[in-house]
Computed example of a mutant assay.
Amino acid sequence: MQPDTVAFDQKKRIASLWLLSASSLAAIVLIRPYWQDGPVHEFIEVSGLMLIFLAILGRLWSILYIGAHKNRKLVDIGPYSMTRNPLYLSSLAGILGVGLISGSLILAVSMAFAFYLVFKYTALREAAFLEHLFGAAYRDYAKKTPLFLPRLSLYRTATGVRFSQKALTSTFRDSLFLLALFPFLEGIEYLRMNGHLPILATMF
């Protein structure tokens, strides 16, 4: 990988994520899940809610380690000892959870995959910049640590981890948005079941 000497412009990532979010919301509104009620629907919905809680915990855990050190120090402990991108991985879990709450397995997987492509592109660009910053230390870290899927056997941590209260507060506030989507999606489900929303397609 050819190292980048300039940090990736996060505005591009944010713009892409907002576009995907708007498209996903439109799909959730217009697509009726095959299982609209019953035990299968409840199981899918509860699974989605559990993933959202895991996503929030994962993002908070990750920011405790990276918040005070981003682009200043190579962080390779805590969640970063198992995967190079625990924040993005946690976000993907939350996105999959939101998709599952909508009731459609296909829509949930499609949403997660679309966001994964954005996160992967961003992660690769960020990896090139971190290689430029930290050189051989980052290359050694990248050789043994997966880009996304965690390798649990690599886990290690340290005592007295210094964290950024501002970064932690900001991440917690942003994570609450995922929880706020639950009553919103329940409202969409109510409107759909009572015939107040147009249906574009039915999807498993």
Rank of each mutant, 00 (worst) to 15 (best):
G58A: 01
L54H: 13
G78Y: 04
F43S: 11
S90T: 02
S90W: 00
D76E: 06
R84F: 01
L60G: 14
L60F: 06
L87N: 03
L49T: 04
G67S: 14
M82T: 12
P79W: 00
I56S: 14
D76P: 00
T83M: 07
E45Q: 14
F53A: 15
Y65L: 04
R72M: 07
A55T: 10
V75P: 06
R84K: 08
N71F: 02
R84W: 00
S62Y: 07
M50H: 11
I63S: 12
L92V: 00
E42L: 14
L51R: 11
D76N: 09
M82E: 04
V46N: 14
R59I: 06
I77E: 06
H69Y: 08
L96N: 09
L54A: 15
K70G: 05
K70N: 08
I66C: 04
V75Q: 08
S91L: 04
P86V: 11
L57M: 07
S62M: 07
L64K: 11
L57V: 03
I66Q: 09
E42W: 10
T83C: 09
S91N: 12
F53K: 14
V46T: 15
Y80Q: 02
K73C: 13
G48Y: 03
L64G: 13
S47I: 01
G94N: 11
V75F: 03
S47E: 10
R84T: 09
V98Q: 08
S47L: 06
R72I: 00
F53T: 08
V75I: 07
A93L: 12
I95Q: 06
I77R: 02
A55H: 12
H69R: 12
L57N: 10
P79T: 01
G48V: 02
P86N: 04
R59L: 11
A68R: 05
M82Q: 10
L74C: 00
R59F: 05
A68V: 09
S90P: 15
I95A: 07
L92W: 00
Y65W: 08
L51V: 03
A93K: 13
H69D: 13
I56H: 14
L54K: 11
Y80D: 01
G94Y: 07
L96Q: 09
L64M: 10
I66N: 05
S62L: 07
N71I: 00
D76Q: 10
I56P: 15
G58M: 00
L92K: 04
N71T: 01
E45F: 05
G58Q: 01
L92H: 02
A93I: 08
L57E: 09
R72K: 15
S91W: 01
L60S: 15
L57R: 09
V46F: 04
L54D: 15
L74Q: 01
I56F: 13
S47W: 03
I63K: 11
